[in-house]
Amino acid sequence: MTYGSETWSLTMGLIRSLRVTQGTMERAMLGVSLRDQIRNEEICRRTRVSDIAQQVAKLNWQWAEHIARRTDGNWGLKVLEWQPRTGKRRVGRLTTRWIDDIRRVAVSRWTQAAQDRGLWNSLQKTYVQQWTLRTEMMMRMKL
């Protein structure tokens, strides 16, 4: 389910869809129907499967580290920094880019931060917690 998720731009809608799909798969693994009225927390406790939002955020962060450490002149880092200039922008908020999520935690010098593995791993914990807490708050607000 997380194939290629390293390069996804994380949004609340995407995380919500992934969590719904994960819940459906876990219920199918246990043979439990929604009519059985078993809470999601109980389902997660039984299956012991890690949260999909945490896993995707972790993969995203690891891919950023990989891209930042490459020194062979590959186009990966150049594509991340590229700003397309195509006519008019759409009305409303700019679309979230993959790199914007990384910069929120690691600031603008994230490529230098990725060179220090200790610092980068501590920032990874912050990044994953940020997404976990943000999505949990948004889910509670929707209820």
Rank of each mutant, 00 (worst) to 15 (best):
E42K: 12
I43H: 04
Q37Y: 03
R69L: 13
Q55W: 14
R48H: 04
T47R: 12
Q54S: 02
S50A: 15
Q54W: 02
E41V: 12
V49P: 01
A53Q: 00
A64C: 02
E42V: 15
N40Q: 11
I38R: 01
E65R: 12
N40K: 07
V49T: 11
Q37R: 12
E65N: 08
I52K: 03
R70C: 09
I67T: 09
H66D: 04
I52T: 04
N60A: 15
W61G: 03
H66V: 03
Q55I: 14
I52W: 06
E41C: 13
Q54K: 10
W63L: 14
T47S: 07
E42G: 04
I43C: 07
C44H: 10
W63S: 12
A53P: 03
S50R: 15
L59R: 14
Q54H: 00
D51R: 04
A53H: 00
I43M: 06
D51M: 13
Q55D: 05
S50D: 11
E65H: 03
W61I: 10
E42T: 15
R48P: 01
R70T: 12
I43E: 00
A57H: 01
I43W: 01
S50W: 11
Q54V: 11
C44Q: 07
I43S: 02
W61Q: 04
Q62M: 14
Q37C: 07
N60K: 13
A57W: 02
A64K: 00
H66M: 07
E65G: 14
T71A: 14
T47Y: 07
I52H: 01
E65Y: 05
N60R: 14
A57Q: 07
I38Y: 02
K58W: 15
L59Y: 03
R69Q: 05
K58M: 10
Q55E: 10
C44E: 06
R45T: 13
W63E: 13
E65Q: 12
H66P: 06
Q37E: 01
E41Q: 03
T47Q: 00
Q62S: 12
D51K: 11
E41S: 14
A53S: 04
I67F: 05
D51I: 15
A53G: 06
R69S: 04
Q55A: 12
Q55H: 11
E41I: 02
R39A: 11
R48S: 10
V56L: 11
S50H: 11
H66G: 05
R45C: 08
